[in-house]
Design a protein around this nucleic acid. Structure first.
Lengths: 167, 167
DNA sequence: CAAAAATAGTTGAACTCTTCAACTAATGCC
DNA sequence: GGCATTAGTTGAAGAGTTCAACTATTTTTG
C-alpha cells in the first residue's frame, strides 16, 4: 500500500507561516488553495489507479463527443504526443473509443463509453465528498460567488492571452 | 531565445469547450484559472532564468528569516531533498545565505540577501503587471473579495487536512 | 492536376522533477 | 552511554514533458 497523498502534508509547524512578498499576488493566493484542493484530486486518482490527466482527458471527451486529439491537446494545454498515450490508455480501459472521422481521415473522433461516463461520475462523487469536507467552513453562496467569479476570470485571461498571441 | 510561454496556447477553436461533468467541482474551476494565471508566472521565471520553485523557496525565506530547510519542505509540500538543491541554487546566485543554527547544529538558518530581496521585488512587479492585464475585466473589489475568500478556504482546507492526519 | 504546404497522429530520445531509500551528523531521551 | 529522532545530503529509479523526426492525409496553389 502506497501513501495516499502525493506529498507530505504540511504539518502546520507553529501555525501558518508568512508566505512572503508575493502574498498579494492573485496567482499565488489561488495556487496556495489549489495545491491543497488538488491533493484530494490526486488522492482519488491514485486510489482509482489512474493518472489525474486521464480524468481531465476523459472529461473533455465526454463533454464534447467527436473531439479530436489535437483539440484536446489545445484545451488541456499539453503536447499532442501526450494525448496519444492518454487516449491509448483510455481505450485499453474501455472508457473511450476512437474512430477515424468520416470527412477527414487524419482525425480521430473520440467519444466516451458508458463505462467511461460511469467512471467519471464516480470520480466526481468522490471529489465532491472531499471538497465538502475541506470547504466545510465556506457557505454555499460563497462558493457560488466564487464559481461565477472564476468563470469570469477565466474568460478575462483567455481574452488577454489571445490578444497577446496575435499582437 | 526560447518560447516565452511554457505551453501552446489554447487557440479557442470554436470558442470555449464544455469542460465536462467535473465542471461544477471547485477544484476544477480553481485549477482552470490557475493554469492560465500560472502561465504568466512561468513566463517570468523563464525570462529571469529561474525555476519557479526557486521563487517560492526564496519568498518563504525572505518572509521568515531563520527558517530551516525542513520547515520550507513542509510549507511547500515537497521532499526535503528538493530543498537541498533549491537552497544550493539560491546560495550560488547570492540570493540567500545559510549558516548553522547556534542552538541546533543540525539545522541551517536561512535568510535572504539584499540581492535576493531585490530579485523577489522585481519578480513580483512583473507578475503584477501580467495579472493586471489578464484580469483586466475584474474589478479591484472583486479581487479583494476573492483574496479574502481564498484565505478562508486555505484555512478551512488546512484544518480538514490536519484532522484527517491525526484521525 | 501535380507540387508544396499544412494538419493529425505516432514514436522515441533528452530533460526535468519527484520520490524514495540510504547515509552522515547532531540532538534528545531513558 | 545507548537508542531513537531529526536535519540535511546524495544518488538511483520513475513519471511527466518537450521536442524533433516521421507517416499519412488533406488543403492550397501555381
Amino acid at each position: 500500500m502506497k501513501r495516499e497523498l502525493p506529498h507530505t502534508l504540511p504539518t502546520l509547524t507553529g501555525g501558518a507561516k508568512d508566505i512572503g512578498p508575493l502574498a498579494d499576488l492573485v496567482s499565488v493566493q489561488l495556487r496556495r488553495v489549489d495545491v491543497l484542493l488538488t491533493r484530494g484530486f490526486f488522492a482519488v486518482a491514485k486510489a482509482m489507479n489512474v493518472r489525474s490527466s486521464l480524468i481531465a482527458c476523459l472529461g473533455l471527451i465526454a463533454a464534447n463527443p467527436g473531439i479530436s486529439q489535437q483539440e484536446i491537446a489545445l484545451q488541456i494545454g499539453s503536447d499532442k504526443s501526450i494525448i496519444t498515450s492518454l487516449v491509448a490508455d483510455l481505450e485499453e480501459r474501455g472508457w473511450a473509443e476512437r474512430k477515424r472521422a468520416a470527412r477527414d481521415n487524419r482525425r480521430y473522433e473520440l467519444k466516451a463509453t458508458l463505462e467511461g461516463e460511469a467512471m467519471l461520475a464516480e470520480f466526481a462523487r468522490h471529489i465532491r465528498d472531499i471538497e465538502t469536507t475541506m470547504l466545510a467552513d465556506i457557505a454555499p453562496e460563497e462558493l457560488q460567488t466564487l464559481a461565477a467569479l472564476l468563470q469570469r476570470m477565466h474568460q478575462s485571461c483567455m481574452t488577454a492571452l489571445s490578444e497577446t498571441e496575435k499582437g
